[in-house]
Simulated scan of single mutants.
Amino acid sequence: MRNRTNKNFIVSLMSLVVVLLLLSAAAIVRDGKLFGFDLRDGRATEHGRHDVQASTAALTANNDTLIVMPDGAIVVNTRLLAKDVQGYGGQVPLRIHIDKGGVVDSIEAEPNAESPDFFNHASSLFGKWQGKTVDEAMAEEVDAVTGATFSSRALIANVQRGLAYAKRHAELDKESEADSPDSDAIGSAGVPGASASAKGWTLGGIAALIVALLGAVVPLFVKNRRWHYVQLSLNVIVLGLWTGTFVSYTLLMRLFSGGVSLATLGTLAAPLLMVLVAMLYPLAGRPGHYCAHVCPFGSAQELAGKLTRRKPRLSPRLNRALNVFRNVLWGVLMVLMLTATWTAWMDYELFTAFLYTSASTWVIVFAVLFLVLSIWVPRPYCRFVCPTGSLFRS
């Protein structure tokens, strides 16, 4: 018995190593970064803190950070100014156009790895700053967009740092100083917006953390069916519909690429706990704990299955075919991810249907279809499709 336990632990440990290697390789291939360390230029973001002197030198050397147009207008690029600010998929650099009168003319996004539907939803915030002077725009209180919280918070931080940089540039022009920008213009703690990404301890975020913690701990000690249904309901309502908190490839890539800092800990606390449950519980002999007790979409399927007791029996042949389909699908998606051929498939995992204000129509349609199917077939998406579940079963 002991030998069998040790063997299972070794198998689980090797599976975890494979998972970590896969995600690390994917983060490097897609973003050139691993846990916040930029492998393209060999510089670390220090998980949310800049080295001021290095950043100053980089900004001075990079003419693209601030461009002065012939008519006196300026364009600020926030790629270096906010290199430590992460959205859901990674950095979200912006170009902020400011006319010669000091008014924000327009804001446009640089290429990024955010989910297009969510990012487009979050970019509706741009109108909050356009048409205002730099001082007015910096004083504008802008809240994150529901359904695109990560992306919108990152956009807010990028805009604030870009505006602070533009203001400092104007002040230096007035003072006729030729010195490089000081730390106040480089996203240090003194810049408005420097902590915008830290405002993650919201009521929803705290509620999500509590529900995820209950799902992680209570089932280990309580085998009560009624409580299980309460937990499933909380998962759907709080983790799914209210906060849109779930483990997905997009989240995993964000964590492995950008890492976790004190500035983002509040926002990422619940998702990080869920990732740890999914990855580490198998080592303690609890494989599938996340899927069974925490995942909001899995919970929704199980609750839908309680609507009827009449379940058609799947033939062994069909069951095998569906399992082969799941494995083949997962293998194809891994190839696409590791070769950076088409990583946009991550945006279409059905979990994103919970973010219904931003999710693709097709994602919502398929999510509903699987929920209906789960009335008769237990957890069909979990068992025969889910790429995230397949990763943790690898």
Rank of each mutant, 00 (worst) to 15 (best):
D347I: 04
N62T: 06
G131R: 09
Y356K: 12
G266P: 01
S390C: 12
S176R: 15
T343V: 15
Q130V: 14
P287A: 00
L273D: 00
Q301F: 01
K83H: 14
Y88Q: 15
T308G: 10
H97R: 08
I98Y: 03
T146G: 13
I206N: 09
D99M: 08
G101E: 13
L251M: 00
F118V: 12
G131M: 09
L265C: 04
S360I: 04
I375N: 05
I206A: 13
R313Q: 13
S248F: 05
R30G: 06
P93L: 05
G36L: 07
A144M: 10
D105R: 15
Y229M: 08
A212W: 08
F126T: 05
L369P: 02
L232E: 09
L350A: 01
L125P: 11
S299F: 05
A61F: 00
R4Y: 02
L213S: 15
L21Q: 09
F221N: 00
G258W: 04
A198V: 03
F370W: 14
P93V: 03
S115G: 15
L22R: 10
G127T: 13
D184P: 05
S115D: 15
R317A: 15
W201G: 08
D117G: 15
F325D: 03
W227D: 05
S374G: 06
M337G: 06
E136S: 13
A359Q: 02
L369N: 02
R379V: 12
P312W: 07
K132S: 06
N224F: 07
I186F: 12
K128H: 13
Q91I: 09
A208Y: 04
R326T: 05
F35K: 02
V277D: 00
N3G: 11
R383A: 12
V324T: 15
A194L: 06
I237D: 07
Y381M: 10
G162R: 06
V17I: 14
I67L: 13
S188Y: 04
A27G: 03
A340L: 07
R309A: 11
A109P: 05
